[in-house]
Amino acid sequence: MLKISSIKNESETTLSFSFEKDCCGELALEISLFAEFLRERSLGGEVIEIVACFASLFVEFDVLKINSEELVREIQSNLSEFRLLESSEEERELLELPVYYHPEVAPDLEWLASEKNMTVDEVVRIHNEGIYVVSSLGFAPGFAYLSGLDSRLAVPRFDAPERVARGSLGIAEEQTAVYPNESPGGWVILGNCPVTLFDVDASPITPFKVGMKVRFVAISRGKFLAEGGEL
């Protein structure tokens, strides 16, 4: 069961609820499911944004329609109604994403292999074996934080962000993610995914959903280019 551990009112129009868990399970995933539950109810238009973060829920509201005390009560009563819908492992959608793992699209691939005393092929194999879970969406449009990276590959992010190419597959700590568009970023880049992951004209605008499982499949240079990948 999710429990609110603290509430911060940092600005005039926002509240940030921190959570703790009194039992097993993934905190980030449960917060995301709660956020979805709240969004479906939309709370009568007084709420502008509901954002699930790793250990907190961020809510922006309209001060002309609701005040922070009322909002806290709303969230608390919704939380007690919220019953975690235990979607079984099998029922969760699995998204397969093709990735071209090669130094010509991945500036850090060889560096990581040598850092970890592995061959490039081993790095790719370990990354491919993982079944990842979307734990949060954010940072940039369509950017999904995927948890479950094998600790043998875990690596801190770089100190200073650099330009990262569209489609870059990165890792940082025990997470992995694809940059949907060119962006500044500090993750360690291992490959490139040619699939469009953010398109405002598509519905949905991103294929990711919190709680969804993701697998990466290594593809050849030829297939990467055929699927629209750019060198």
Binding site: E10, S11, T14, C53, F54, F58, F139
Partner: peptide, 27 residues
């Protein structure tokens, strides 16, 4: 990482703050 309100003042490790505006990152 958590949500960032408009106008939030982040203190970076350099000791120099950034006030986050309309096009800020979402977390």
């Amino acid at each position: 990482s958590e949500g960032i309100p408009l106008g939030s003042i982040q203190l970076t490790p350099s000791g120099h703050p950034i006030v986050l505006l309309n096009d800020r990152q979402t977390q």
